[in-house]
């Protein structure tokens, strides 16, 4: 069983008069088998929350624990390994390496880590995401939505325990968005993963197991 815990996490940017509290005293817990949605207006702290959850930033106060070990107590090397093996990031932009074709984006992962999705599973995933025809294309030959779907596939390819996705459906139409969310929910439910999706797409609200809202750095569960 994996879990992700925030213990009184506060994140403050800047100092003195330019001090800005991006996250305020957040307590949060996610367990395997859950699809969690984090919604909130622009600038409310969603990306900050997600990057702290993935260990890309350290909290100003409080602790973040993954599988009961505090992220900031891990060495840089261990954190890199954690991100490579346990976490799948889907970021708001620049997810893909511009000089690699879609296919090669996955090959790069193979170079770094063994035991990724089997060929058959990968084929299913690519076909679910409608990517099979795009394998030979470079990122600059893809639409925004296609890029986003490739980024999702890239994050899922390592078969991570945690998937942290920042607006993964922003560039997708309603049908595609629903499909992607269903795919993620299935993964959470059937494969026991923790999936946290940051979005301001309220259409997705009903698909999640839990929905949290962040407003001005404060988080509360709304569903």
């Amino acid at each position: 069983m994996s879990n992700l815990i925030f213990e009184s996490v506060t994140k403050v940017f800047g100092e003195g008069s330019s001090k800005y509290v991006a996250l305020e005293n957040i307590n949060f817990k996610a367990e395997s088998g859950q699809l969690i949605l984090v919604v909130g207006p622009s600038g409310s702290g969603k990306t900050t929350f997600l990057t702290i959850a993935g260990g890309l930033q350290t909290p100003t106060e409080g602790d973040v624990k993954i599988n009961d070990s505090t992220i900031k107590s891990l060495s840089e090397k261990q954190q890199t390994k954690l991100r490579l093996e346990k976490i799948g990031f889907v970021l708001q932009s620049y997810n893909l390496v511009p000089f690699l074709t879609v296919e090669e984006q996955f090959k790069l992962v193979d170079k770094l880590k063994k035991q990724n999705l089997t060929e058959q599973k990968m084929h299913e995933l690519l076909s679910d995401l409608g990517l099979l025809e795009l394998l030979k294309k470079y990122p600059n030959q893809l639409s925004g939505g296609q890029k986003q779907r490739v980024a999702i596939a890239r994050a899922l390819y390592t078969d991570p325990d945690y998937i942290l996705a920042d607006e993964p459906t922003a560039a997708l139409d309603t049908d595609r968005s629903m499909k992607v969310i269903e795919l993620l929910r299935d993964l959470a439910h059937k494969r026991n993963k923790i999936i946290i999706v940051v979005t301001h797409d309220l259409r997705l609200k009903n698909t999640a197991d839990k929905v949290y809202q962040i407003i001005d750095g404060k988080m509360q569960m709304i569903n």
Partner: peptide
């Protein structure tokens, strides 16, 4: 930017 993302995805420095 791409190097940053690769790092986020667990590619070592």
């Amino acid at each position: 930017p791409n190097l940053g993302v690769l790092k986020a995805q667990g590619v070592s420095t």
